[in-house]
Design a protein around this nucleic acid. Structure first.
Lengths: 247, 247
DNA sequence: CTTATTTGCGTACATGGTACCTGAATAGCT
DNA sequence: AGCTATTCAGGTACCATGTACGCAAATAAG
């Protein structure tokens, strides 16, 4: 019986408790995933190789394939394990702005704890249970306002797009510095800095230059910047809602 | 003289015309990049390996390193070569909504022609000249409205976030199908479909289920869906502008 | 012609995913 | 208890990848 039919990891649950013959499993999908997450947190996703994960668990690389069909599926599992850390109340509070602010803060914190999360999340179409839970909460915030479900989905997408790009922006150069093996400060100063300076001095892109030179947000903490952008999106959503409501 | 100092590809221009001794270069950075783009278009970025590109050019893999320091830099070059296809007028027209609609259409068309573009673009912090040109045009659309440059940057970011995620959504399952080697229709039907159906039938996520079942946009063409989402973002921006203008 | 310099590129190495296979462990059956 | 079917553990091996290194070929100045 060859079950080589390729299907979503979420349709291939871990081998259940069973009372037949055969050796007992010594590891678990969650244990493997947790190990992969730890390595990725500390050294980047590219360090979370099958051999490295197995080594951390004290076993051989091929043993992992008893629990995970392919490495890509392990990515999906990692994403969902991280999303499990997003703590949300059971249901919406009635104030959508409060709910989404809470969601935003939680997602940002989780994304910063796992710098690989957003990159993976936006690079593969996955729908794990915890991602669905978070998504459902976001949709729920707009429930009861008389909006069509398509419009709700659109508003949630707007928020999500901001969250993903804002968190990514916050960590991208940190990650890039790590990937190239440079010190974070050195990367900004020696790698990107000179080029930006050259562009600015060339005068070819005056508005871009102004955005670099005249920025009033440069002295803000990353969290304050995040908060400002979030408020902007929430303002935009608030402005949109009346026009979406059928008269 | 070891020029191993790692710096942005944009600070390391191609070896110039020179009249000294030494063998003449037989290839060029642009030629290599163009070849890489062609392969990536047809078979995905992961097929555009150094050996494959070199093979296409009828040379050895190591020859490419005379023109491109690292593979990652080649990605930056590919991004910028693709962005060069975004056709824009020399300056803003005075109607920001028209300008951004044009920009959106151009970026979508380019993103669909090069299904790897958006994924690369959002996965690495790069600032090639053509990307800067497009960005400058977007900023320019809001020039003269009395907005602070930070606010302009914020509005452009909103639009960009939408464009990236919308184009990505439009091609993500196509790409995923190709990556797993499945037929596009089969992928939807056999790979993702059963799981979504199971989630919907479980009743655990009622709003997500409604977004799947009650969607009124299902029968629309991708372009119409894109246009609807774009209008939503532009409406949001329009609603935001007055509140950003200093009184 | 010699020499300095630059490109072309074969070879080689380290690292990656993972197919395959053998051996060990386990529970039910006789 | 012993046999057998079944499952897990994991070593070995294969192939693909980026790229460091070194040498040969080409080229212009002296």
């Amino acid at each position: 019986m060859a079950d080589a039919e390729p299907t979503s990891i979420w349709m291939r649950p871990e081998r259940q408790e069973r009372s037949g013959p055969g050796r007992r499993p010594g590891y678990s999908r969650e244990q493997i995933t947790r190990t992969a997450v730890q390595i990725a947190d500390a050294e980047g996703v590219e360090a979370a190789t099958m051999r490295r994960i197995a080594g951390e668990l004290g076993t051989g690389a091929m043993s992992l394939y008893r629990y995970v069909p392919r490495r890509d599926d392990l990515f999906d599992l990692m994403i969902d394990l991280a999303m499990a850390e997003v703590e949300l109340p059971g249901g919406p509070s009635g104030d959508w702005r409060d709910d989404l602010t809470l969601l935003a803060r939680q997602l940002r914190a989780t994304g910063l704890r796992h710098p690989w999360l957003i990159a993976l999340l936006t690079s593969r179409p996955t729908l794990g249970p915890h991602l669905l839970r978070v998504h459902e909460f976001a949709l729920g915030a707009f429930d009861g306002l008389g909006l069509h479900i398509d419009d709700i989905t659109g508003l949630v997408a707007m928020l999500n797009d901001y969250l993903h790009s804002a968190v990514r922006r916050e960590i991208s150069w940190l990650e890039e510095a790590r990937r190239t093996g440079l010190d974070s400060e050195r990367w900004k100063r020696d790698y990107m800095g000179p080029y930006v300076r050259q562009v600015v001095e060339s005068g070819t892109f005056p508005l871009f230059s102004r955005s670099v030179l005249d920025s009033r947000t440069a002295h803000l903490t990353p969290e304050e910047r995040f908060r400002q952008g979030l408020d902007r999106i929430l303002d935009a959503i608030a402005a949109l809602i009346p026009s979406l409501r059928p008269r």
